[in-house]
Amino acid sequence: MKPNYLKNVATLTLDTEKCVGCGKCGEVCPHGVFDFVNDKALITQRDLCMECGACALNCPVNALEVNAGVGCASAIIKGWFTGGAPTCDCSGSECC
């Protein structure tokens, strides 16, 4: 299926000045968010970004930023109750 979730929410940003066009972000992205134009990365499918953080973690020049985390409602609720960051703790049988 073609993913179709909420638009204009992803926190992904790319600093084109810093980008060296190594292509790593495109390699690790599981949703084909990036394209490469003139040896630079370009975010062409921002609404497909699920904020997993793989691109930012593997960018050798820190040109990418994203508030990475788990897109899991029960993890977020658990985070509210425990006061911590949402973690997909999956204890019992909840989530992923």
Binding site: P3, Y5, V9, A10, M50, V70, G71, C72, I76, P86
Partner: peptide, 11 residues
């Protein structure tokens, strides 16, 4: 939480 495409910001 089981889906493969929902971002935390979206959720």
């Amino acid at each position: 939480g089981s889906s493969t495409y929902t971002s935390p910001s979206g959720v």
